[in-house]
């Protein structure tokens, strides 16, 4: 298994997006064409919002509209800026990627159609984004949380040198694979001692519910934990079987993952930039 090549392929995953303004908002001065762009799955909305804003700026009343009060919506749902873009897409499209029927391809065709807003910030659902420092803090805290799950403390993150922390952050901001993984490899390495628990978040679809409970690397039988055994212990309602997907399939980075995939191996390849393995579920019709 070529770990670097697989990490690279996942890192390069992106979602073609079509972003439009909400012309009913008073800060929008004229009808304007949509903005087409490609957003990396392993990144976050705040890292692209300036670029999106700049495109629309000539058509906006900038006394009202600014980067700080911008927010994106997909089909009536505000997109949480502190969740990875790939997770938002997989979760809210809700599609079973293994289903390739014609009519479904039509239904779920890309680009992902998003609406950019500046008014009526949905405070009930979104945290205030504020400055770029706010996003850094949110990401860094999540990284420390995943590290605490993995190692029992956030020591691996907090003991990075200033140069390493900067490189990791710049790798994320610039979407630079070598910079990011050059440091991240150290954070998820086995040399930090035996793994306490595996950092995993599972998103139950519709109005999403996040499940994050302790999942050990090995079962009591000393067998390695698989995605199937983990889901069976986390959400027995949807995963009665440890081996076969009966009503829902696990999806990571838009791909259905086999139930017998060892969790630790998957984690080495497929963790998101916050150190968690985010798993969405595709309900089987």
């Amino acid at each position: 298994m070529d770990v670097t090549a697989l990490r690279w392929s996942i890192w390069e995953g992106s979602i073609p997006c079509k972003i439009e303004l909400d012309s009913s908002e008073s800060c929008v001065r004229a009808d304007v064409l949509p903005y087409f762009t490609k957003l990396p799955r392993l990144s976050y909305i705040p890292l692209y919002i300036s670029q999106i804003f700049q495109f629309f700026e000539p058509w906006l009343d900038t006394k009202v509209a600014s980067v700080d009060n911008a927010w994106l919506e997909f089909e009536g749902v505000p997109l949480k800026w502190h969740w990875p873009i790939g997770v938002l897409y997989d979760l809210f499209i809700g599609r079973d990627p293994s289903d390739t029927r014609e009519e479904d391809n039509e239904e779920y065709r890309l680009p992902w159609s998003l609406i950019l807003h500046f008014e009526n910030f949905p405070t009930k659902h979104l945290m205030r984004a504020g400055s770029s420092q706010t996003f850094y803090d949110a990401w860094n805290n999540c990284l420390k949380e995943s590290s605490s799950v993995r190692n029992g403390s956030a020591k691996t993150v907090m003991s990075l040198s200033k140069a390493e922390s900067t490189k990791l952050w710049e790798g994320l901001v610039e979407h630079d694979f070598d910079k990011f993984w050059g440091v991240n490899d150290k954070l998820i390495s086995d040399t930090n001692g035996p793994m306490r628990n595996f950092p995993i978040r599972v998103y139950i679809p519709s109005t999403p519910r996040v499940v994050q409970l302790p999942v050990s690397q090995f079962l009591d039988s000393k067998e390695p934990q698989t995605i199937g055994t983990a889901l069976h212990s986390l959400i027995p309602e949807l995963f009665k079987s440890k081996r076969a997907a009966l009503v829902a399939r696990p999806v990571v980075h838009g791909v259905v993952v086999a139930m017998n995939t060892p969790l630790a191996e998957l984690g080495q390849l497929a963790v998101y930039p916050d150190g968690f393995l985010h798993v969405t579920l595709a309900m089987m019709s």
Binding site: V247, M283, S285
Partner: peptide, 21 residues
């Protein structure tokens, strides 16, 4: 709230899938 895309999937679920969800 639930997206239209997700609700299309959910309404076509078999009964045991819906109950489990």
């Amino acid at each position: 709230p639930i997206t239209l895309a997700a609700s299309v999937v959910l309404t076509s679920l078999p009964r045991d899938g819906r109950a489990a969800l």
